[in-house]
Structures are given as C-alpha cells and as structure tokens.
Simulated scan of single mutants.
Amino acid sequence: MKLQQLRYALEVYRHNLNVSEAADALFTSQPGISKQIRLLEEELGIQIFIRSGKRVVSVSQPGKAVLELSERILRDVQNIKNIGSEFTDHDSGSLTIATTHTQARYVLPRIVADFVKRYPKVELSIKQGSPTAIAQMVGSGEADFAIATESIDEHIELRKLPCYEWTHAIVVPHDHPLLDCRHPLSINDLSGYPLVTYEFAFNNGSSIARAFQKARIEQPKVALSAADTDVLKTYVKLGLGVGIMAKMAFDPKNDADLQLVDADHLFEPSSTYIALRPDTYLRGYTYDFINLFAPQLTRERIDKMLYMPIEEDFSI
C-alpha cells in the first residue's frame, strides 16, 4: 500500500467520481490513476469504487471506510511535514484559505498585502465559495482554514474561533419608493418588493431568514440570489429588486448610484469565524495570518480554543 494510491482514491472521490478530472488535478494520466486504485483494491481484497463498464458510479460501503481513514492518514502525514518545516524552514511553505466573496473582496486585501510583505516565501492561495462549500474544503483538507460569515454548525468536526460581528444593510437606487418611508423601515416594507440577496440568505439559521420568520412572513420573492456581492449590487442598480447585503461591502465612492439604508434594527448581527480542524498542526505564519485578521486571537488563545476538550451538555 502506497500513500500515492490513497491520494489517488481520495482525489477521485473529491471530483465526484470523475477519474479524468482527478487526473487533471493531480497532473497525471487517467490510466495511471485507474491502475493504482486497482492495485490498492487487489491488495485490500475489496472494491473501493463500484463501476459500470469503465465508469466509476459509486463508493462501496467498505470503500467509504477506506476513504475516511485515507483522509486522516494523509492529513497526519501533512502535519508531520509541517512540524519538520516549522523548524527547518519556518518562513516558507503554503497557506490555503477558503472564504466567501465578501470577505475576499472587502476585508482580506489589506490583510493579505501585510501578510505577503512579512512572508514573501509563503505560497498563499485563496479559494472562494458558499459557507457550506468552504467548510467542506477545510473538512477535506483542501484548505487550512475557512473564514466563515454564516452558520456552519452542522460541521461538528470543525472548531470555530469567533472574530467579529457584522450587520446587513438595504441598498436601493436613489429614486426607490422605499426611501420615501416616513417610519423606520420594517420587514413588511421589504416584503412588498422583489429581493436581491445572497444564495444562502434564507438558509436555516441565517439572520435574514430569522427576521422574516419572526415577522411571520413567508419567504418573499427573490429576484436574484448571488454568491458575489458585486453581482448583487449590479442588479440592484438595474432595478431588479431591493438589495440585502453585508454592510461592510458598501463603498460610498464606488456605489455612489446606490443608497444605503441602515437595517441594524431589522436583522440580528451575524458573526465571522475562523473555522479549523482541531487535528491540524498550524505553522507559525498561520497563527500570524489569523492574528492579522482578528488581533484578539493570539497564538495562546487560538491553541486554547482549538485544542481544549469539548464539554458535552447532557441537561434536558
């Protein structure tokens, strides 16, 4: 059994059982991957993947267990490499961060610029996705940590380090009727118009979804759901609907043709977290990046939150 074989099998699984895409991601050939997985299956005496002709169509029950252990083994191997690198080459390596568009576009540029100056030999990669997707990237080892702006409570394998709270705001064109309201804006006012907001805005646990539930209003008409805040603002400018977005993403200079309406009284504050696996060995520069992003998260505090035992609450 070789680590390379485990890596090949995992990569096929991560690419939705598409061997060709896995080969492209690993810069190798499709026949080479297929051969190594077959050799692994022969050695183990089981089928990891179920095939129909030449196509991989699903994962067998024992195959799921093999893939789960393979992921753990490869993660531990990487941790061992990180420990060695920390002492032999502490200021170089790689760091992959998974985050949402809003964070990547409006919060991270200044922090990334500072980090790159401090660690020019660290290969930094930023991957964008939905809150669910970025949590999965960390869980699978594709990213070292995630900067999450919505609830990821369902990913119990991750530890969440709270960073700061942020609020939503309403954006509309300058001639929009909502601006003529003589009373504080309400959820009822918003429900009378099509909305332009995030793809995850009405997921369970979202502060936007909770606000409409509290007002006992069924999910309103959503004219556009976007992952990208800039796309969201573009369609609000075109008059497609009323925008609900992160307040931090409004730039008075670049968004001069939009009017921001404060909505602190409508939506509960949302939290931004750093999400990590507790079994990950963090390089020194990873601690520094997190501290640049959230100054209150010192190395000592990160270790305490990351590695402290989880206390189960059995109260009824």
Rank of each mutant, 00 (worst) to 15 (best):
V222E: 05
D89T: 06
R72V: 13
L6I: 09
K81T: 05
G141R: 06
R301Q: 14
T298Q: 10
A223L: 08
K221W: 01
R277P: 03
L266M: 05
G205A: 06
A249P: 11
E157H: 02
Q61T: 12
L3N: 11
I302T: 07
N16V: 11
I83E: 12
E43K: 14
G139K: 10
L306T: 04
Y164N: 10
W166A: 15
L232G: 07
L224R: 09
K160F: 01
V107A: 12
D257L: 04
T298L: 09
L260Y: 13
I244W: 05
Q61K: 15
L260E: 14
I316V: 00
K121I: 00
E86D: 13
I80K: 12
E157Q: 05
D313T: 00
Q259L: 13
T99C: 07
V231L: 11
S315G: 04
H176G: 10
I46M: 10
N188Y: 04
K214F: 01
E218D: 13
F293A: 06
P278A: 07
E86C: 08
A98E: 07
A22I: 03
Q128Y: 03
L158R: 02
D279H: 10
L224A: 08
K117P: 07
K81M: 03
V138M: 00
G84R: 09
I244Q: 08
F200S: 15
Q213P: 00
L26R: 01
S151Y: 01
S140T: 14
D303I: 11
T280W: 09
S271T: 12
R216V: 00
E71G: 14
L240N: 04
A246W: 02
V77F: 06
L240R: 02
